[in-house]
Simulated assay, not measured.
Amino acid sequence: MEAQHLHAKPHAEGEWSSGFCDCSSDCPNFCMAFWCPCITFGQVADIVDQGSTSCGTAGALYALITAITGCGCIYSCFYRKKMRAQYNIRGDDCGDCLKHFFCEPCALTQQYRELKHRGFDMSLGWAGNVERQNQGGVAMGAPVFQGGMNR
């Protein structure tokens, strides 16, 4: 099983599991993405990059780009593209950038929801999700058969 599909749940191939404007179903995360998008972006980037970029590093870089340019979406729209490629979700580069430019909180919240839908615990990050998966795999062994042969 590929690491990027550790927790994949079935849904319509090529589609997001929730709509772009379904933020009302995830109000706490939308508020976090609105007031401090670097945190939500960092969590998304950690999972999408499969742990090669930590949540803290991605969030700090996002905050730095935002402080310098006023537009962190320059960075975050590339992660939307990367996520679409990983999960075979339809879309295009122009649409990704426009979504992030005009409504960054909605775009980040949709990506966050998508990863949650695929079974990731966003508070654990990539390493924590892998560890959780491995512990589940170790605990689930072959059933123990007790008793002898009976007729």
Rank of each mutant, 00 (worst) to 15 (best):
G128A: 04
A3G: 02
A3H: 00
A3R: 11
F101Q: 10
Y112H: 10
H11Q: 04
A3W: 06
E131W: 02
F78C: 13
S18H: 08
D93H: 06
M122C: 09
L98P: 00
Q4T: 11
G19W: 01
G95L: 04
R113V: 13
A58Q: 03
L98D: 01
Q43I: 02
T66L: 07
V130Q: 14
I47Q: 09
Y112Q: 11
D26M: 12
A63K: 11
G148L: 11
P37D: 02
T40L: 09
A45L: 03
Q133R: 14
C94F: 09
V130G: 03
C23Q: 05
G42S: 05
S54G: 11
T53R: 11
I74D: 04
A67I: 03
R90L: 06
F101N: 06
F30L: 01
M140I: 13
V138C: 06
A12Y: 08
G51N: 06
G141H: 10
C55F: 07
Q133K: 14
C97G: 07
C36T: 10
D26C: 12
A67M: 12
G141K: 12
G128Y: 07
Q86S: 04
D49Y: 10
S24F: 13
G95A: 08
Q43E: 14
W16P: 02
L124V: 06
D92A: 11
F102E: 00
K82L: 12
F78E: 01
T40V: 15
L124H: 04
G136T: 02
F145S: 05
C97I: 03
A8M: 09
G147T: 04
Y62N: 06
D22G: 08
T109A: 00
I65G: 10
C106D: 07
R151A: 15
G70E: 01
V138H: 15
S54L: 09
E13Y: 08
G91C: 04
D49T: 13
F41K: 02
G125K: 06
R132N: 07
S18L: 01
Q50T: 04
F78Y: 12
G91R: 03
P37H: 07
N129S: 01
C31H: 08
R84G: 01
M32C: 14
S17H: 05
K82E: 14
I47W: 03
L108F: 04
L64T: 14
R118M: 08
